[in-house]
Design a protein around this nucleic acid. Structure first.
Lengths: 335, 335
DNA sequence: TCACAGAAAGTGAACGATCACCTTCTGTGT
DNA sequence: ACACAGAAGGTGATCGTTCACTTTCTGTGA
């Protein structure tokens, strides 16, 4: 490595000097605009290697007025976001963006003040949220910060077919009906989430379409207590034979309450959850669920955001996002 | 708001002009060095408000050569990192740092190449990892990037008492012994993790100290299959009466395999996990576990990193990190 | 051989802060 | 009234890139 004042990182001009070209040529080299002679390129290659030069991204940001930073907002409840995050961040990193995760403890109250400030700081070019955002955030659109909320779960996606998770709910009910279930109960997630609204809506539509019977829609949050209480509160005189829960935690609560009432699962009651939490496979009975390709969901959400930010078309990855896993908690009803 | 060419954000010089001071005075105002006359400060207040000026953090970074960015590395396995992340990011944000989460899909192979590059880019002032790092990362210390691995779980922490999770393992075994359990089995997590090593070590020490009997240490990864196979592989002739699992998923696997063998839990076998996953409360039997204050763990990890980065002392938050939750899966042994 | 067009490379000024240094106030004591 | 010190504020250079232009090289056809 060629000498430099110790502790100082090489700059573009150092590289230029060593390669006997101008700093601008080096700049072109790094933005690979093309139009460099092979010989020139080779000299720069060498110089870069010798100095182990890396472009200073901050200086670049300063000049281009793009900071290359995106924010991701995660809900503090419900599912494990690790893979979602893995997908989202890898997509962003591939596109040359950095991702700041803004986890929102303290619920939606603190969130309402925090997010507009984040945007106002001009710290981010875009914002990807997997949690519902308070309405006042919409104001900030005019500041030029792109916002995407939770991609595939959006209300507007209702028509989009295989991408929407609603159609998976329909498939679940169809399968349960084919097994002979007629009386259903849905235990829904928080109404704040578009995904919960979508599942709930499709549940109602499908029950009606197939001429089945719904004993109602319980729940309203993502907790196990919601599932437990929904079952515990049922009157002995009119019971469901199948429960469609909005996630595995709710489903586990429902299973527990059912067992406490002395019901057999399956047989007296079939239960299916959502998210395919790893632990579900090892419950007794093992829990039927829906495996969600969170990594792809994360990637696709981020790709949508990148499309907005870069104003280019970005091809979403397709392929099945949802896979229904039938396990022991679902079987033929005995009554 | 005073006029400006539309679409352009106000700069420090705009503020200075409006407040009839120099740009340097405005700079002082924002770095609150003190030494501003009240009247001057008031004029700047006004100008800032009128122009809705915000300092350009990128320009600041460029000059100060501090980018204010920290990276967090999460494991892709095991527990839900949402709260850990919430704690870590909030601590960083309070200190004026942004946090990029680098989730590591593809296991430790891809990681080995990716992380050194991240550091080499000079993109981050510090790195906080909750996953084990490959050895070659240590090289990068001399580049000036501070690195903290998984704070409280570190091997070096073994002596530190109430902060170490090892002492919780001791408390668990003591309680089980008091209930009458004598023959133990530990199902450990991945050896790559300091926390798994610590729990394993303290398990052995405590068994010996109390004169109990260990039937061995099984496992070696964080999956439910590890728990299931550990139980399924036991010989009928010499069985444990208590299982200490390294996390809830392993514990759930162990419970399932035990029930499949026709054992009663508790009675024939007591089982305790770790992490207090929400679903554990609703298992049958409900799963004893250890609740970890992940938010504080995240904060403390980040505070350690900030201490290294800023070279200042930072007071860690104290208070109990671990709480043992005794639920139905543990009871008096019947044999 | 020469004009000429397009490719390749160079020049100097931004971007918006902070730093190091310098100058001008302000109040105090004699 | 004056010197003087410390507080308050100002000046110009600088960080490492990219942008907008300008200049030089290169190959082609007449």
């Amino acid at each position: 490595m060629t000498d430099l004042e110790p502790g100082r990182r090489a700059t573009m001009r150092d590289v230029a000097g060593l390669a006997r070209v101008s700093h601008q040529t080096v700049s072109r080299y790094f933005r690979n605009e093309g139009g460099l002679k092979a010989a020139t390129r080779a000299r720069i290659d060498d110089a870069v290697a010798q100095l182990s030069y890396r472009p200073n991204l901050i200086a670049r940001s300063m000049r281009t007025r793009r900071n290359g930073r995106l924010a991701v907002i995660l809900p503090t409840v419900a599912f494990n976001p690790a893979r979602l995050l893995a997908g989202a961040t890898s997509a962003a990193h591939e596109a040359g963006y950095a991702v700041d995760v803004v986890s929102l403890a303290g619920g939606s109250t603190g969130r309402g003040e925090h997010i507009p400030e984040l945007i106002g700081m001009g710290q981010f070019e875009g914002l990807l949220s997997y949690a519902p955002l308070p309405a006042n955030v919409a104001e900030s659109v005019d500041t030029g910060t792109a916002i995407v909320v939770s991609g595939d779960f959006d209300d507007e996606m209702r028509g989009i077919g295989k991408l929407a998770d609603g159609s998976t709910v329909a498939a679940i009910i169809e399968h349960l009906a084919a097994l002979g279930h007629r009386r259903f109960l849905h235990i829904a997630g928080s109404e704040d989430f578009a995904s919960a609204r979508a599942r709930r809506r499709v549940y109602g539509e499908t029950i009606e379409r197939l001429g089945l019977r719904s004993l109602g829609i319980a729940g309203g949050n993502w907790t196990g207590e919601a599932g437990r209480d929904a079952i515990a509160g049922l009157s002995e005189s009119d019971l469901p034979v199948a429960v469609v829960a909005a996630n595995d935690l709710i489903a586990a609560g429902a299973v527990r309450a059912s067992l406490d009432r002395g019901w057999r699962i399956p047989g007296d009651l079939s239960v299916i959850g959502w998210d395919d939490e790893p632990i579900g496979r090892f419950l007794t009975p093992s829990l039927s669920s829906v495996s969600v390709d969170l990594e792809r969901l994360g990637r696709n959400g981020m790709l949508q955001l990148l499309a907005k930010v870069t104003k280019k078309e970005v091809a979403l990855e397709d392929g099945p996002l949802y896979t229904i896993l039938w396990r022991e908690s679902v079987g033929e009803p005995t009554d």
